[in-house]
């Protein structure tokens, strides 16, 4: 199921599929956010913005409008 990183709930994991063309795309890529990278949303600031994500063991905080540029794929839950 494809979504924006900003829409992923706390504690959930998602895989980056692409980043929208923008002035900060390069910076996000340099932080290791490339297609195929699995990230976990850890927690959000009190007003829901910014969010903190885990990228390979380090915690990165992104403003919601920054996170909404990152398109991700959520692993579909197996329905038994």
């Amino acid at each position: 199921m494809s979504a924006k990183l900003s829409e992923i709930k706390n504690g959930n994991c998602a895989t980056v599929t692409s980043i929208e063309d923008s002035s900060i795309r390069l910076k996000l890529m340099e932080m290791g956010l490339l297609p195929g990278k699995a990230v976990t949303v850890l927690f959000r600031a009190p007003l829901g913005d910014p969010i903190a994500i885990d990228v390979n063991g380090f915690v990165l905080s992104l403003r919601l409008d920054e996170a909404s540029l990152i398109l991700v794929e959520e692993p579909s839950l197996a329905i038994a």
């Binding site: 002035s23 900060i24 910076k27 996000l28 932080m31 910014p50 903190a52 380090f58 915690v59 990165l60 905080s61 992104l62 403003r63 920054e66």
Partner: peptide
């Protein structure tokens, strides 16, 4: 010129 951004690392 630049749009401000946060992209801050939260160190352990």
């Amino acid at each position: 010129r630049d749009k401000g951004f946060l992209m801050l690392e939260l160190p352990s």
